[in-house]
Design a protein around this nucleic acid. Structure first.
Lengths: 254, 254
DNA sequence: TCTCGCCGTCCACTATAATCGAACGACTTA
DNA sequence: TAAGTCGTTCGATTATAGTGGACGGCGAGA
């Protein structure tokens, strides 16, 4: 690319490429990795052998696979995260109060990352889980975050990620999205239904810390419930109280 | 070192060492990494720069930190895992039925890894979470697994991990442990209280698939509840039913 | 306001360590 | 039994990681 190109360590990158392949195939030996990556079998073996020493990959009778070490490291990152620690209890209370599914999300690498979920008694079972990622433009929590980002940053994200539709209701037009983001900024909250999953809707409110968006909290419900304006208003009020509590607790509590 | 020594790729290992350091310090620049690892600053920079390209590390204004990518990868490994998929619903039902905290654990790298937790209404809040690890010999689920492993394997684990006490009740004598493992094998279940955390006790039953132990399910309660023999018997019966269901569902369902 | 010192980043030379083909023993299949 | 896999090992070649020094930016202190 650039003439002065930046120095990248190919062996480290390739090690992570192998991790990505191992993720896809679940288990594989040197031969399969070698053919998939177009490298000699002995080279693939050297990487696998080394990765196994790190505990992130486990050698199981000649075949290799990713270990639970990723879950360990990831969970520990989550559980010592200030935003999560401050929010956990408050989110649980919100889930009990509303009987709905509550999510805490953050933005990373131009995507929505679900940091935590709390289930209520009536909550949807959609397979949303901590660590899952979704495009930012397909749901209310993502849009709540987008609305707080500088316009140019939003442009970057749209450029790299596109506005791929995942349902028929997904926003795919940049002007429509930008207009909605302006509305969200004014209202202080975001709403959507059927934009990410048909039958699912949510309300979302951003968490701002020191003039910067740190994440967002969402309440996920069936479309039919969220469509009811009065119910929506009730949820939004409780959600806002929770977000306010998180903000205050974050500022003074940790 | 040794003449026939095995070929390990030092740069890959060092990359993971840097990840470990980043885990400890949360955020750091090249200079700090360099001093902590006794390597030149430019070398540290090259690693950090490369790791940032993998998305597992994020460059945040000159300083680097681990990203949520670990959580993403780890969670996805968990959620596509057959044992977890088969168990999740049954564990949730067990938690509702008993009102206690239910855990699904597996063994990896000679440790207990908590794969999943389901909370009940009366369940203890101890900061146990998916991805957490504990020594195998300190709790009933770990001992349930140990009891299913070959004697020589148990010896290896004791040798590498030791029998470190974490409370005054922790088993620290190998003969006592082995004798208890024999009892667990006979009874088909394990019990402990105050061995891992004072005030906490649990019952655990191993999950055997194809003559191999795949993990264990535990019910975690306050010590005072688990000490009651009748209550314990009730829990064990429900736990056994759940484990049986998991075993059958695993065999025919996935 | 200016200076000093530290930071993250970049560059080019050198020596090390990753690469790769070939060969081995163990299994599976024909 | 034989042919074809597999994972693993070895050693020579060469691409690549290691390294010190230099650059520009930032913040603290004079």
């Amino acid at each position: 690319m650039t003439t002065g190109g930046t120095p990248t360590m190919t062996s480290v990158l390739r090690a992570f490429d192998i991790i990505a392949v191992l993720w896809e195939v679940k288990r594989a030996g040197p031969s399969e990795i070698a053919t998939r990556m177009s490298i000699p079998k002995s080279t693939a073996h050297a990487y696998l052998r080394t990765l196994a020493e790190t505990d992130y990959v486990v050698n199981d009778g000649g075949e290799y696979s990713l270990s639970y070490r990723f879950l360990m490291t990831g969970s520990r990152i989550k559980h010592r995260n200030s935003l999560f620690r401050v929010s956990e209890q408050l989110l649980a209370e919100l889930a009990v109060e509303t009987d709905e599914l509550v999510t805490l999300v953050v933005e990373q690498h131009d995507e929505t990352v679900i940091l935590h979920t709390e289930r209520g008694d009536r909550s949807l079972e959609l397979g949303l889980y901590s660590g899952m990622t979704t495009p930012l433009h397909t749901n209310a929590t993502g849009k709540a975050i987008l609305a707080q980002l500088p316009d140019e940053r939003v442009g970057e994200i749209i450029e790299t990620q596109g506005l791929e539709p995942v349902t028929e209701q997904t926003i795919t037009d940049e002007r429509v999205l930008r207009s909605e983001l302006a509305d969200i900024r004014d209202a202080g909250h975001a709403v959507d239904w059927n934009q990410q999953v048909v039958g699912m809707g949510l309300v979302g409110i951003p968490i701002n810390i020191d003039e910067q968006v740190a994440g967002a909290v969402g309440i996920v419900t069936p479309t039919e419930r969220i469509k009811n304006e009065e119910y929506r208003r009730t949820l939004l009020q409780k959600l806002q109280e929770t977000v306010d509590s998180i903000t205050i607790k974050y500022r003074y509590g940790h």
